[in-house]
Nucleic acid binder design. Sequence first.
DNA 1: TACTGTGAAGCTATTCACAGCG
DNA 2: CGCTGTGAATAGCTTCACAGTA
Lengths: 228, 228
Amino acid sequence: MIADSAARRDIPDATVARLPQYLRALRDLAERGVPSVSSEELAAAAGVRSAKLRRDLSHLGSYGVRGVGYGVDMLAHEITRELGLAQNWPVAIVGLGNLGHALASYLALATRGFQVVALLDRDPDVIGQQIAGMTVGPVDDLERIVTGRGVAIGVIATPAASAQGVCDRLTAVGVRSVLNFAPCVLSVPAGVDVRKVDLSTELQILAFHEQRKAPAAQEMTPLLEVAP
Amino acid sequence: MIADSAARRDIPDATVARLPQYLRALRDLAERGVPSVSSEELAAAAGVRSAKLRRDLSHLGSYGVRGVGYGVDMLAHEITRELGLAQNWPVAIVGLGNLGHALASYLALATRGFQVVALLDRDPDVIGQQIAGMTVGPVDDLERIVTGRGVAIGVIATPAASAQGVCDRLTAVGVRSVLNFAPCVLSVPAGVDVRKVDLSTELQILAFHEQRKAPAAQEMTPLLEVAP
DNA sequence: TACTGTGAAGCTATTCACAGCG
DNA sequence: CGCTGTGAATAGCTTCACAGTA
């Protein structure tokens, strides 16, 4: 009875996307020495409703105690295992401009479950630089380095024009998880996951809502009248 | 009949989140001189199914021509207006470490619809620096600067420990849209929108799927057995 | 008693499939 | 004819409300 028999299959995507938030909240609680937490408290710490949290956790199994709550350490450990963070995934970052540099620094320090094993760039001035304790290698050697160091996750922080080419080369040598910071759509073979992070998109979504909040501000740019 | 009578209200969130992708694809097409595009082609360029694209665009109004497709310039203009990008939203970036620096550089150049009007940091060594043509100001003057320059959108790129405090000060002086890069949950008053961008979360979601793809790789770190 | 886990209901989003129009 | 726009069907997600349990 080490692993639970039920609920191991098909955790909904929406739930998976929230598990990292729960894990972060649990680690904060653990640091403060809190041994146990109710769904109400943990939900508040993660910024969701308690019913949603309970539903999410029910997909992992029954790790709560009725009348009491969830054991902080136990639940943190469980989510860590479920997310696949019990091992250190080898990560390569391609493109070390401003953004890639920032990502490398952040990843080198803060994040458990991942290890930066390769930094790659095209620019001869950047190749050879030390960033967060690693030397930047030439992107020309991408295949050799990625294969040799067993990279599982590729982070693309190149300009948009280079992103698809880099992505093709990564997937060609077996990388099946890609995090794309370039502002473009990537085509990948079946079986490869791509996630996209895009500052412009996020700002534009905010702008949409901001515009709806501030009809008074339209006197600044009187584009057209809206009927009612 | 300048603005359409129908379909101006409640565009679904899922649709709003995709409009930026459509806009990007349309701008690419416009640059290549393509005058008109079918839902099938535009959907492919944006990485979605054509039925989804048509449903999304139907929420904006009827801007297509049956038997032909959508006018590239006209649709781009329409989405631009709908997203609120016909004006330049004043943006403040708080926190100019590696990440804030990268964001400032990116925003200064690449993005229409937004203008960086303030860079703020706490560190005396950073205050006074020139970044992307702007001088970093002291975060102590946040209220005066944000109010004086009419900031509409605040970008938080501070460490997690400072993020809530900065957010409180931004919302206190009327900022109602916040983009949060700090790895923490922000509490905000009603009427304020927060969007979060988080490298760790994205990597952890990839790790979850990667783990499900690669049961063979478990020999590398044999943590525990899973029954069947 | 105080809480979790979950059936059932309601809501949102996606997809199908085709009527209707240029 | 070829394509858009959309009713209808489906799938997925969230919320309610409470039975069940330590």
